[in-house]
Amino acid sequence: MRVELPMPRVGPVNDDAPRPIKVVLNWGRRYSLWVFNFGLACCAIEFIAASMARHDFIRLGVIPFAPGPRQADLMVVSGTVSDKMAPAIRRLYDQMPEPKYVISFGSCANSGGPYWDSYCVTKGVDQLIPVDVYVPGCPPRPEALLQGIIRLQEKIASETLSTKSIRAKYAGSRRAAAGEVTRPLLVKPEVTGRETGGELS
């Protein structure tokens, strides 16, 4: 079924809105980042530690209780992204509402990390989705995530959303589905004589 979708755009008044309104909008986006934790490996433990009482990133306005991607503003990918998990990450990122931000947390999510030569590890989550802030470390300490969040908040404070920028972001990839980031089989599975049954061979 083909569905006609409208072009991406900001609200009709946004482009001509006076500067104070944009400042207020950015201020609101900056300090209520509902975060969607994509915990995939040990880095997720550091993320959880950052959300707990000692490091407490809720004081920065990061709220770790998003029930799903549709209620989230920020996705923190913490851990090893495998090629099998890649379509799910892409799909969940696609289902987040605009404006959305991504923090890549830890070496694995940044570049594949210690698994840089693995057959099944995605070499960085930025191959799937646009990343705003990279937090280095293996795993990074919770303080590193706090620094990353502050960096992201600086970025949000200085950004200006416009129809032009949002269309540039979606250019070429609007129709991409999760299946398009699934790698095809490298080798066709061998079919033994007993299982063929006449039609597979």
Binding site: R91, Q95, A176
Partner: peptide
Amino acid sequence: VRLVLAPRAPTAAKLSTYECGVD
């Protein structure tokens, strides 16, 4: 205010049902 200010970028993937990332 949401109607006149908020950005909107619907895609087929975004409009599909949320099933924890799978079809």
